[in-house]
């Protein structure tokens, strides 16, 4: 069972719909016990970084997420991906989960339209099990105003938007983060979610 961590931040219904469509067993969970017993975890999220961290903290989920992310497939999506890093500068400095080293900063380039909203092409950089069935010309749907800054070794794929934007990050073990929304990225997104499900079944 894939546990979708429901902590009050984000459109979890789209994600649940996509996993249901793929017939991947999933549940919305918000307690420590369910997170510990799940086979895989997804951390969704939209909105602001500090508010999301506070919601995880107030529900007592920060430590259990850190523990379990090292033991089983873990996917952060959009803001949930940004939360994987050490810290963010959205509304001042705020610590993240620290599962992948790096920082999150506002996207910035002259004339750049913000948010980065729409379909952008995935450019593969490193091997990643979630990209095994993904070709060279595949687009996924993004909507965000901040982006991760991290080492190339953690970038499975990036896209170009006012410079390089980490699109899919991977710690080489169990932790994955998608800046885009696989649940809203048509066939390509469904393939990525299906590969994530394939890590356990």
């Amino acid at each position: 069972m894939i546990a979708i961590i429901d902590y009050g931040a984000g459109n979890i219904f789209s994600l649940k719909n996509a996993l249901d469509f793929l017939e991947l067993p999933c549940e919305l969970v918000s307690d420590e016990k369910s997170i510990r017993s799940a086979d895989a975890l997804i951390l969704p999220g939209v909105g602001a970084f500090p508010a999301a961290m506070e919601m995880l903290r107030s529900r007592g989920l920060v430590d259990v997420i850190r523990d379990e992310a090292a033991k089983k497939p873990f996917l952060g999506i959009c803001l949930g991906m940004q939360l994987l890093f050490d810290k963010s500068y959205e509304f001042g400095e705020c610590d993240g989960l620290g599962l992948i080293s790096g920082e999150v900063r506002k996207m910035d380039a002259p004339g750049l339209i913000i948010p980065h909203m729409g379909w952008n092409k995935l450019e593969k950089l490193n091997d990643c099990p979630l990209l095994e069935n993904i070709g060279m010309e595949e687009y996924v749907y993004f909507v965000h105003s901040y982006k991760a800054h991290c080492g190339d070794e953690n970038i499975a794929a990036f896209c170009e938007y006012g410079g390089r934007v980490p699109a899919l990050v991977y710690d080489g073990k169990t932790v994955f983060g998608a800046q885009f929304h696989p649940e809203k990225s048509g066939e390509t997104g469904l393939k990525i979610l299906s590969s994530f499900g394939g890590l356990i079944w």
């Binding site: 219904f13 469509f21 929304h181 649940e183 809203k184 990225s185 997104g189």
Partner: peptide, 8 residues
């Protein structure tokens, strides 16, 4: 619609 359409 949201159950079978996976674009925004």
């Amino acid at each position: 619609t949201a159950k079978k359409v996976f674009v925004p």
